[in-house]
Design a protein around this nucleic acid. Structure first.
Lengths: 87, 87
DNA sequence: AATATATTTAACATTTAAGTTAAATGTTAA
DNA sequence: TTAACATTTAACTTAAATGTTAAATATATT
């Protein structure tokens, strides 16, 4: 956890795009995968990186797993960036 | 250039620490290197990543090269993060 | 010009990340 | 309980990132 894990998670364009998608509404793994050309397994691993960084939360809904954005973690990044900007 | 290059550059803890140091005042390569346990060459490469991402600017001062923070690039990150936060 | 100092680049080794396919797990429904 | 579907994990491959040491470049000094 912490800034390092967050920044690392955000450094991959596929993961950032997933977060962009989740901004609108929550989605299942399958719905997310459909939007990309890479394999289901690859998306699943990206989702686990985002989950470990607490950038998304997942809940099982029957045989689906639904992902939603957790933007609260981003506050730490905002603070760090701001601290560089001021002065 | 662009968000991807910026995020990638910021995903390394050594590079973030360099930016933190430059927040206070500009520093030469050597002064920066002194603060870390890794080799001069490794720091030099980190600096080149930061320079390519336009997060720092460098100017030669005699036999030294002085690095200063360029925070303007961070605006793009702020906008992206904010766009995730609102809603 | 030769030498010393500061910094960068090159070549290489090691580690980490991201992708693939196949196997495993969890859930629903026949 | 078996079959089908959704998702995750495992094993593996390839590419990229990070570190090291040594060579190259740039500037200053003698």
């Amino acid at each position: 956890m912490g800034l390092q894990e967050t920044m690392k998670a955000l450094s991959d364009p596929t993961r950032r795009e997933i977060l962009n998608m989740l901004k609108r509404h929550s989605m299942t793994s399958g719905e997310i995968e459909e939007q990309f050309d890479i394999s289901f397994a690859a998306i699943s691993r990206h989702l686990s990186v985002l989950r470990d960084a607490d950038l998304v939360r997942d809940t099982r809904e029957g045989k689906y797993v639904r992902y939603e954005l957790n933007a609260s973690v981003l506050e730490e990044i905002m603070l760090w960036v701001k601290s560089l900007q001021e002065n």
